Simulated assay, not measured.
Amino acid sequence: MKSFSIDDEQLARLVCALTGDELARHFNHYTDFVAQAEWGPDTPVGEDGAELTQEQLEACARRFCSFFDKPADSLITAASDTFGSWSQQVKQLIEKDLRTFRFHPATQGGVAEARHSADEVWQDARMIASLMHGRRRIITMVSTHSLFGFVTSVLAPNLQHLSVVDGRAMSPDLLADSLTFGDILIATPTLWRYLAQTLPSFPNNVMGLSFGEPLMLDLSAELREMGLGAMRELYGSTETGIIGWRDTPSEPFVLFDHWAADGEKLVRTCPDGQVRELTAMDHLLWEGDRTFSLAGRRDGAVQIGAVNVFPQKIGEIIAEHPDIAGCNVRVAQRSGALDRLIAHIDLNAGVSPNQDMAWRVDEWCRKKLRPPERPRIYVFGQVS
């Protein structure tokens, strides 16, 4: 795939993002997006920088190689490396040959990979680039390590020759001052909810781009009332690729040109002319040959902060606590507020549902669950 282009700064930003995700997935070490946004090509991976241990350093290097489907030992590492030196090594590899990407979806096990040919990722980028036509600049609030983040804030902007600014470290006041006529602002619905609560308004002709979880109609309307010129929402998944888009939550999604419906299946026409059948992660309610709305997840996942979580699995993990007999987790959806998880916990006979018990459960959840998986409310009952 010869037409692919990723510059040095984008590669360094990508390796920083992959490092943050790898630390969270396999070391239970969460680096907030503000800290990640401050990492750059000159940031040491070890002391006085990201402070990676030797084990973490090796795992993150393997993850960077894996992203481009290169052998795990392709990257020669040392504690004195910088993120920029890592990206320069991989740059030499992908300039010679780049055929496949490997993305990590937020699955129940947290370790599955989704492989996509580089040509198909490029095909997705061309479709997204068409939605960006006529824009001046992009400010992104999302990381580049995911399929959607990579396509929307690296590949598609490159096709339209748009500069990209990482807005994750910006305060609301700085972001408000930075937005200008013709910009695109990329964020997940959870972040859009935060922006709606913290920004005073939007300049004329700013377009929003949203993905990762459903965009609710009340939030979309609130953003438009604040002056947002347009809001485009993408649909798809890490497993399938980017499937469709719409301009408002009140309308159905529209398939991109290389997709077609075939009963319960979706059919993708690939750049090489091959045709593949895929199943969407959601049940799709077709309203025309090429338009659809969503009718619930197939795998029982819900989305908290643009991350797929599985309430049944979360309940099973909480129920492993020695004082707990059973746990049921549900999602509380509130108009004008973020979705949150509520855990209904049955304690073993003789265990008191007091504050100390709540702290023990909370500590258990912090050790066993990722931040988006942790319930915000505990409701205690007791087995008689």
Rank of each mutant, 00 (worst) to 15 (best):
T152K: 13
G350H: 08
A332E: 15
L195Q: 03
W39T: 03
A325E: 10
T188D: 05
V164G: 03
Q92N: 10
R334V: 14
A125E: 06
L57Y: 09
E38R: 13
S163L: 04
A106I: 03
R246V: 03
W86C: 07
T31M: 04
V90R: 03
E251L: 14
A343H: 07
A129D: 11
D177P: 00
V206R: 13
K368R: 00
F33L: 13
R246G: 09
V45P: 06
W364T: 03
I128T: 01
S201Y: 15
A106C: 02
T82Q: 05
R115K: 12
D362L: 15
G149M: 06
Y194M: 10
L93N: 06
M170I: 00
Q274L: 09
W364Q: 04
R376P: 02
S87P: 13
K96F: 07
D81A: 01
D346W: 13
D73L: 08
V309E: 00
S143M: 08
P249M: 03
M216L: 12
G49Q: 01
F148N: 04
A332Y: 07
G241L: 11
G305S: 12
F103A: 08
Y194E: 03
A72D: 15
L185G: 05
G46T: 03
L284M: 09
R246P: 08
D272C: 02
V90G: 06
I342Y: 04
E95K: 13
D282F: 09
D166Q: 00
T43R: 09
T248W: 08
R136L: 10
A17H: 10
Q36C: 06
R115H: 07
I342T: 07
C365R: 02
P172E: 05
M207D: 08
P375D: 05
A358G: 04
E264H: 08
Q54T: 13
L234T: 01
K367F: 04
W86S: 05
R376D: 03
L209Q: 04
K91Q: 13
N28T: 05
F253K: 10
V309K: 01
I342C: 00
Q123V: 02
E113C: 04
P172D: 10
H161R: 15
D362F: 12
A196L: 06
E233F: 01
R193T: 04
R370I: 00
R246Y: 03
L338E: 11
S171G: 00
D247S: 13
P214H: 13
I138N: 07
R99C: 01
I314V: 12
T152D: 11
H258C: 02
Q56N: 00
N158Q: 08
P189Y: 07
L284E: 10
F292A: 02
D119R: 09
I94P: 11
H283R: 15
A112D: 14
N328E: 14
A176T: 00
A114V: 06
Q160V: 01
A221S: 14
A230P: 05
V154C: 14
T19Q: 07
T248H: 15
K91D: 09
T279H: 10
H29V: 08
V111W: 06
R99E: 10
G326A: 15
S130T: 09
W259A: 00
T100V: 12
G149V: 04
V379Y: 08
I6D: 04
S178C: 05
R374F: 11
D323A: 14
R374I: 15
G20R: 15
V383S: 04
K91H: 14
F253M: 11
F68R: 04
D48C: 13
F33A: 14
E316G: 03
T238L: 06
